[in-house]
Amino acid sequence: MQIASAMSRHISRGVGPLEVQEIIGFLAGADPSPSTAGGPRKTILLRGIVEMLSALVEERGLTDPDVDEFLALAEEGCYEVARNDGGIDAARRGLDIGPWYAGEPFVPADEYLDLGALWIPSREGIQIEPMSSDSTSGCADVTLVLDGTALQLQVFRRTEDSTWRAVRHDLLRKIRASHSRASETLGLAGIEIEANQAVTMQDGSSTFMRVRFLGCDGPGWFLRGVVTGTGAEPESLEQWPYEVFLNTVVQPVPPGGGSDTIPLHPPVVP
């Protein structure tokens, strides 16, 4: 295959010829070989795809159709790797990427606002909407607002039905059943859902609202983020909702109560 031979001339020493062949085979739809199936293969695959894409820039012997074909396969391959992983790499979460769990050794040294079950990074200009609570259940969620974009955060006890994979499936089903559009996409926090949801206004009229759903599984917990406003638009380049989501620290999960939702309290500075 011309693409494979071209890539092997330009790939770095970190990815050997056999791995190049495996990557090409994976992108073409082949099953992984028994000797490389499992966790290590996933790491090699993602790095290898990036290096092979870079090599395309240097390779003059490929025709435009070859390049287009490979880019299409690479895009689908990266999407499948992230999909199979359920979003954020579980092996990396807590090491070099968040959301974090209290007590993990690599939690960034940052200024946080204490909401009880969640500590959220303090960022200049971000406003927290008033949080209402009662003496029994506390606050169910918190909403942060900046420049027309809102991020709602909510943390749950993790169960078989509250993993990010299960929640995505349920959200897609419910949104589509309401005659709204929704799809899975790759974002800065892994797999997310982009939706154009039908909503009813206070005057009874109907309109559509753009929404992005983020999620991450942790040890005993599941963190969900909901982005609305200008940051949820398809052309938006807003990064602060992702930065806050990925740097949020989940505190030790209290014993289970009558709800999977872990209550929060109004913010205090630790």
Rank of each mutant, 00 (worst) to 15 (best):
R92A: 08
E80D: 12
P34F: 12
L46I: 12
D141T: 07
A117P: 06
R158N: 05
G48F: 00
T185M: 11
I23G: 13
D147E: 14
H169N: 08
R60F: 04
I128C: 15
G257L: 10
E80Q: 14
F245Q: 10
P266E: 03
W119D: 00
A4F: 02
G231K: 12
E104M: 13
V15I: 15
G116K: 13
V57S: 10
E58D: 15
D170S: 08
I3D: 03
A102L: 09
S8Q: 15
R93I: 10
M7T: 12
V81I: 11
A55I: 06
G87P: 02
M1T: 09
D260M: 06
I24Q: 07
G138P: 02
M7W: 10
R123D: 02
R157N: 00
W119E: 00
D141S: 15
W164R: 08
V20T: 15
P32N: 09
A117Q: 05
H10I: 11
L146V: 04
Q2T: 13
G14L: 14
L223F: 00
D96L: 07
G258I: 07
T149P: 11
R168C: 14
R92K: 11
E235R: 13
T230N: 08
S33C: 02
R210D: 04
D66S: 11
E194I: 03
T163E: 08
V199G: 02
Q202Y: 03
L246R: 14
K174S: 13
T207Q: 07
T230G: 03
P17E: 10
P34Q: 03
A117E: 00
D260P: 02
L151N: 11
I191E: 09
G231Q: 08
